[in-house]
């Protein structure tokens, strides 16, 4: 079904100079995406603790994927391909922060960071005040979240 559409799809303007320019732009975008991925890998190696590494990880996940998707659309020159690739971007935009949040939260709780690199930690006192590992109403822990919410509401 996809193949049928691709065959039937209207292509962009396909004159010779335009094609060259579009190909060149696509090439630059691919190189940028590859550079971002490499930078993320280097950051993952060189940054000091898990939380800092998490920041390095988010770049290719969002901007890199967006750049590559645009590059594909430019090189194939078809709107339908762009539509087919939109779910890729949407899924990345929705899932990358969630997994980063969950991993970061787990990393913080497991003590997987270097306190010396933190200038300020405004979370620690609040965690201590809450007395448990769970903040009031916070996070994904349904049971404790429910209990806390009911306390807060009444």
């Amino acid at each position: 079904m996809i193949a049928d559409l691709l065959r039937a799809s209207t292509s962009f303007v396909d004159s010779e100079p335009v094609a060259t320019v579009l190909d060149a732009v696509a090439a630059v975008l691919i190189l940028l995406a590859a550079f971002l991925t490499l930078a993320a890998a280097v950051g993952l190696i060189r940054f000091p603790d898990a939380l800092a590494r998490l920041h390095a990880a988010t770049k290719p996940q969002i901007l890199g994927v967006i750049l590559v998707v645009i590059a594909i659309a430019l090189s194939v020159r078809s709107w339908v391909v762009l539509l087919l690739l939109i779910p890729v971007i949407v899924f990345q935009l929705l899932t990358a922060p969630i997994s980063a949040h969950m991993v970061g939260r787990a990393g913080y709780r497991a003590g997987d960071y270097d306190p010396d690199t933190l200038a300020v930690d405004e979370l620690a006192p609040d965690v201590a005040a809450a007395g448990t590992s769970d903040l009031p109403g916070g996070g994904f822990d349904d049971e404790s979240g429910t209990a806390q919410r009911q306390q807060g509401g009444s």
């Binding site: 939380l51 988010t58 990358a96 922060p97 980063a100 970061g104 990393g107 979370l123 009031p136 806390q148």
Partner: peptide, 23 residues
């Protein structure tokens, strides 16, 4: 969270409070 350099590591829904890890 999507913008590199900042990341929500904990949030408190009742008080609409975010804990942001900022590079």
């Amino acid at each position: 969270s999507l913008v590199p350099g900042s990341l929500v590591i904990e949030l408190d829904r009742t008080n609409a409070r975010l804990y942001v890890h900022q590079l």
